[in-house]
Every structure is written in C-alpha cells, then in structure tokens.
Computed example of a mutant assay.
Amino acid sequence: MSAAFAEREVERRGLTNVEILTGGTHPAGHVHKGVVETMSELDIDLSEKTPQEISTEALESCNVVATMGCSTLELDADDVDVRDWALEDPDGKDPERVRAIRSEIETNVRELFDELFDEE
C-alpha cells in the first residue's frame, strides 16, 4: 500500500528525482487479498503485484526508509532516515480495519512527501 501511495504522490507532484523501492526483508508470498480489495476501492490495482525481498545494501542506498512496524531493521548507514510507522499487519483483518490501516498509510506517505518536497 505504501509504495502505491508513494507512486501516486510522485505523479501528483510531478517529481522526477524520486525513486521508490519497495519490498520486505521477509516478504509474504503474495499481496493479501484484503489489501488488494481495499486498494481497488481507490482505483489502485495491486492484483498483479508480488512482494519482493529488498537487500540491506539497497536500503542503505536510500535517503529515507519507512518500515511498517514489523521490522527489526538495523542499517549501518548513518545518513539513512529510518521511519518506523508501527502499523498493524492488515493480513486477516476485517475490511473496516484494513481501510483504517490504508488510511493511516496514505496519511503517513502524504505527510512524508510534504515534509521532504514542499520545502523545495
């Protein structure tokens, strides 16, 4: 969800200097059905997405890393801004709870982009 919202912010703001990396250190085998259904309510199609593993090396090359709350991420790069959003895992949650998590993610992403790019 966060990558989809970040990609939308990049497009909305016309940013050309942003690369979105998405993945997990221990990714699930598929995007959870409830997440796919809930995101489709916003015309965001995640049905063909597959969770990817992301390496520590790739994370250490980033300016900002946002974790969803289930990570024990430790990076050696001092110049990476790591944000742990401490979100509940939406897997197996009822649709209302998934919508609430989706809303929290959308807000976090928008606020992060406001912080990083409204100063330009």
Rank of each mutant, 00 (worst) to 15 (best):
D89K: 02
E37D: 09
T22L: 12
E19C: 12
G14S: 06
N108V: 09
E119N: 15
A6Q: 05
H26S: 13
I101N: 00
A28K: 11
R8A: 07
M1H: 03
E9A: 03
E111N: 12
M1Q: 02
T22M: 11
E96N: 15
V18Q: 02
E104Y: 04
V98Q: 00
E19H: 08
L42A: 06
E115P: 07
A100G: 07
E119I: 14
V80L: 07
G34A: 03
V80E: 04
V10N: 03
G14I: 05
L42F: 06
E115A: 08
R110N: 11
D43M: 12
K49E: 02
V82Y: 05
E119L: 15
P51F: 05
A100F: 03
M68A: 11
L112C: 11
K93M: 12
H26G: 14
E7L: 06
A86H: 15
Q52Y: 07
C70V: 12
D91Q: 09
V109M: 07
E119W: 15
E106K: 02
E9Y: 02
R102I: 01
S40A: 15
I44N: 01
I54H: 10
D84K: 07
L21T: 12
L15V: 07
L46K: 00
K49C: 04
E37P: 01
E96L: 13
E19W: 11
N17P: 05
L75V: 07
I105K: 03
G34C: 02
V31N: 00
S71I: 04
V109G: 04
E19Q: 12
E37A: 05
L15Y: 10
D91P: 06
E53Y: 12
V82A: 10
P51D: 04
G69N: 12
V36F: 03
E74T: 13
E96M: 13
F117V: 03
T107D: 07
V64L: 02
L112E: 08
F113T: 02
